[in-house]
Design a protein around this nucleic acid. Structure first.
Length: 883
RNA sequence: GCCGAAGUGGCGGAACGGCAGACGCGGCGGAUUCAAAAUCCGCUGUCCGCAAGGACGUGUGGGUUCGAGUCCCACCUUCGGUACCA
């Protein structure tokens, strides 16, 4: 009887579905485990082999926990709003709901074909009205707490495309697609006040079992402590407020810089300077962030002609505008201290501005003339001792900062200030396929705006839709194309305008971003069919918090930060009971395409790898001539590998590159899970993805690797279907079986699936060598296999005479006594080099070990005539003789 | 530049401070076969050696230790994130 996955996998999938084997049920007295996957966006291209990696890992954890008597919640759903479906609708005129439903059906079929133990009765879809209702309800919680507000924010508006573009979609001031001009224009947007939670979002990471993601989030939030300082402007009433983290260097400020887009920039510019300032500001506005930074290392700027009065000395210092100061951070203006800030230093050098030392490194005398700092090569940005600063002279930096702030506050020139890099979250999208924002506004009109009569909308008076009217659903459109900065929904006049008590109102036509639905889906899984409440208190108490959350590190910042923000708002509203939703977080590593061997060829033939360099775009160039090189895909037969170098067989002086690239359609290296399942079976795919290497690591796909895993499952199947008998286990077999059980269990708990698989391979290799495989050994092996290869495990469990389902059978036990050695091969070292081995009891005395070692010929030879000067003995581990 | 992770055979990778290279792939040899596939058995880090055996070996250089892939310092490379955040 051969192992034929296509014969058995569908059958067991149907069995699990019919018997609702994996319905999440909470039983009193049992521990619980909430194991969550990041749910996918159901794209039109179907499942990718990257998806099953994390999903298999959580599935193993869930199935293993279940076998250990734990109540498990392991749900799956769809993050189904999004641009591709809308794009499809624009092209075909078909409602995006249809395309979305078709894609979901494909994803569901593909996931079910992999045998994941999801509770499918809890499936959620973020586009479902029953889900949208609660997304909107949460938005209104934010709105009522003052955390959702409107503001005019500059966006990238492309008039030709009639749409707003993301920064990445704008290149050289033109749209990436089509190359149409893009203008920055202010647009009314909804924002969420995530900055109000910045401190808590940073601090409450502390107790979480998360990887380096915590640091990324802290960096993203970017808290800094400093001061705002007010500068009077010579001859004007306005003041210019700057933000600094180094108030101790205030006496070293020799000029002030205001961002080109600061509201005061044009206003304060002198008449002579105004044209130049305007030209500079206009040019800066057209530059993308990328151009401003990556391309131009040189500092640029222009003098505004205005002067600021130094708050402490009263002396006038020039005000420049320069794009190295960002309008959006801090106050949009800085005091420039070139002696102690790199950027200010570069700018001062370029514009020949004075550089004055006010912080002296500990252990060096202050400059005789502070202005000699102009001769430095670089700014001194570290801590030191304040000099030339009457209020704080002689104080070390930390104290100097505090004393200066006190002084500024007392004199009324400034104040202590905590600043964040984190910005408020722009929550509007001028799109169709998203949750409508459940807000409307009063309208002034003489006619009927639904017939297109002119009207004025009062944006300053947003009104929340009543909870009872939720969900506010999307209207059908005939045409999903963009065109209006307020979004395509403006064309749905019947939907947009309504009359109540004689007063006309207009609905908000912006929709929510894709992040909205994924911010809280883990909560809806608790009680997904509840149409009275977002979830019941009992369901919450049963399952929260999420114990293990697995997903890609591309969501390390945005999704995970936004979800934590919403959770905290719900916590403050008393709706959830934990300040943090996700206890333990793991990012699975990306699966790359199969490694390819690439040779580089230029106009004059092959170019060896070490003579190539990274080119301006994707490809490589000749390091000397800068000529672009052609990438030539080679086969293994073209290449010889020796001493870590891959070279051409035809010309061994040419080194070639062996690299794995991200899977992409253009490279043609995408692996389709459907094909893998058809050829090798779902169990092989699952086991292979776990065997490839550590879960968190980036790993290249290897077709031969899955072949090897399939061979392992074949062998296991053959061993159990052909060799099992009622013979008692011999001692070696019994020990190996129990050790395997122990290792597999421990490895699963630590998410070390690759070594768990290898332990099972070792056991199978051993059992395959036996005449008769003891039934008890076979049973424990199959139970260990069950979380990894559930279909095969079910099949073999039935073959061994048990009723279904193996999913409910307790995890096998092991005898700890069998898992420790009583006799070991002890390595014997002489001066740290292994010279022999002796077989000894683990607890042998040092004298006994020494005697046994000296009886070894090889050890005696290594010792020579010398007697050991020192003996290091670790029972059961090592004997080291030092001469 | 800054932050983070990682560098181990031909490849994916394994190793509580204690036998480096488990397991898998690939390769070589053999069994089976008319032949092949599949399967089974053996060998497979590099170098020297007929062999016994020996030397070298975990990115580089130093250090701690009886003993370092593992700990410490400096550096190099790759990958990920971030980027004039005052």
């Amino acid at each position: 009887m051969a192992y034929e996955p296509d014969q058995i996998e569908g059958r067991w999938q149907r069995y699990w579905a019919e018997h609702q084997t994996f319905r999440a049920v909470r039983r009193p007295g049992h521990p619980k485990l909430y194991v969550l996957d990041m749910f996918p966006y159901p794209s039109g291209s179907g499942l990718h082999v990257g998806h099953p990696e994390g999903y298999t890992a959580t599935d193993i954890v869930a199935r293993h926990a279940r076998m250990r008597g734990v109540d498990v919640l392991h749900p799956m759903g769809w993050d189904a709003f999004g641009l591709p479906a809308e794009q499809h609708a624009i092209q075909t005129g078909e409602h995006p709901r249809l395309n979305t439903a078709a894609n979901i059906a494909t994803f569901r079929r593909q996931l079910q074909s992999l045998g994941f133990a999801y509770d499918w009765s809890r499936e959620v879809d973020t586009t479902d009205p029953g889900y949208v209702r609660w997304t909107q309800w949460i938005f209104l919680q934010l709105f009522r707490r003052g955390l959702a507000f409107q503001a005019e924010i500059p966006v990238n508006w492309c008039p030709e495309l009639g749409t707003v573009l993301a920064n990445e979609e704008v290149i050289d001031g033109r749209s990436e697609r089509g190359g149409f001009p893009v203008v920055r224009r202010p647009l009314r947007q909804w924002q969420l006040r995530i900055t109000a939670y910045a401190d808590r979002l940073a601090e409450e990471l502390e107790g979480l079992d998360w990887p380096e993601t915590k640091a990324k989030q802290r960096d993203w939030i970017g808290r800094s402590e400093g001061a705002e300082v007010d500068f009077r402007i010579a001859g004007r009433d306005e003041r210019l407020t700057v933000y600094t983290t180094r108030p101790d260097t205030l006496y070293g400020a020799t000029y002030v810089v205001i961002a080109p887009d600061h509201p005061l920039t044009l206003l304060i510019a002198s008449d002579e300077a105004r044209d130049r300032v305007r030209a500079y500001a206009d040019a800066a506005a057209r530059k993308s962030d990328l151009e401003r930074t990556a391309l131009s290392k040189e500092k640029t700027g222009v003098a505004t002609g205005a002067s600021a009065l130094h708050p402490l000395t009263g002396r006038p210092i020039p005000i420049f505008t320069a794009d190295y100061v960002l309008g959006a951070y801090g106050t949009g203006a800085i005091m420039a201290v070139p002696a102690h800030d790199e950027r200010d230093f570069e700018f001062a050098k370029a514009f020949s501005l004075p550089i004055v030392e006010v912080v002296c490194p500990a252990g060096r005398a202050p400059l005789a003339d502070p202005a000699e700092a102009a001769g430095w090569d670089a700014a001194f940005t570290e801590d030191g001792v304040a000099v030339g600063s009457p209020v704080i002279d002689g104080l070390p930096t930390a104290q100097a900062k505090a004393r200066m702030i006190d002084h500024l506050e007392r004199e009324g020139f400034g104040r202590r200030k905590v600043q964040y890099k984190l910005r408020d979250w722009v929550f509007s999208r001028q799109r169709y396929w998203g949750e409508p924002i459940p807000i409307y506004f009063p309208v002034e009109t003489a006619g009927d705006p639904r017939r297109g009569d002119p009207c004025t909308i009062d944006w300053s008076r947003p009104i929340a839709v009543d909870d009872g009217e939720l969900p506010l659903l999307l209207p059908a459109l005939e045409d999903y194309r963009p065109g209006d900065p307020e979004g395509p929904l403006v064309r749905a006049l019947e939907w947009r305008f309504f009359q109540r008590d004689g007063q006309w109102f207009a609905r908000e036509t912006n929709t929510m971003p894709q992040w909205a639905g994924s911010c809280w889906y883990y909560l809806r899984f608790l009680d997904p069919r509840n149409d009275e409440r977002i979830f019941s208190e009992q369901a919450y108490a049963d399952w929260m918090p999420v114990d293990l959350y697995v997903g890609g590190s591309e969501h390390a910042v945005l999704h995970l930060l936004y979800a934590r923000f919403w959770h905290k708002v719900l916590f403050d509203a008393g709706i959830v009971q934990h300040p943090e939703p996700f206890q333990k977080l793991v990012h699975q590593g990306m699966i790359l395409g199969e490694a390819q061997v690439i040779g580089y060829r230029g106009p004059r033939g092959w170019v060896s790898l070490e003579r190539t360099a990274e080119g301006p775009d994707e490809g490589r160039v000749d390091a000397e001539t800068r000529e672009p090189l052609e990438e030539v895909k080679l086969t293994e037969a073209d290449v010889s590998r020796r001493a870590g170098l891959a070279t051409l067989v035809a010309d061994p002086s040419v080194r070639v590159q062996s690299v794995a690239f991200k899977m992409s359609k253009s490279r043609g290296n995408v692996v389709n899970p459907d094909h893998v399942v058809r050829e090798f079976g779902a169990d092989s795919l699952r086991v292979y993805e776990m065997f490839m290497g550590p879960l968190e690591q980036v790993k290249p796909w290897q077709a031969s690797g899955i072949q090897g895993v399939r061979r392992f499952l074949d062998r296991l199947h053959r061993t159990i279907t052909e060799r099992v008998g009622d013979a008692p286990s011999d001692a070696d077999t019994e020990r190996l079986v129990d050790r395997t059980v122990k290792k597999v269990g421990e490895d699963i708990e630590h998410l070390r699936f690759n070594t768990a698989v290898s332990a099972m391979m070792i056991l199978v290799n051993h059992l395959a060598g036996l005449e008769v495989v003891p039934r008890a050994a076979a049973e424990k092996l199959v139970l260990c296999l069950a979380p990894f290869a559930p279909h095969l495990a079910e099949e073999l469990w039935a073959h061994l005479g048990h009723p279904p389902t193996i999913a409910d059978v307790p995890w096998p036990s092991f005898d700890p006594a069998l898992c420790v050695d009583d006799v070991v091969e002890l390595p014997v070292q002489v001066n740290g080099k292994v010279r022999g081995r002796v077989t000894l009891a683990v607890d042998a005395t040092e004298a006994a070990a020494l005697e046994a070692a000296l009886a070894e010929e090889a050890v005696r030879r290594a010792l020579g005539a010398a007697a050991p000067r020192k003996v290091v003995y670790r029972a059961g581990r090592i004997l080291n003789l030092i001469v």
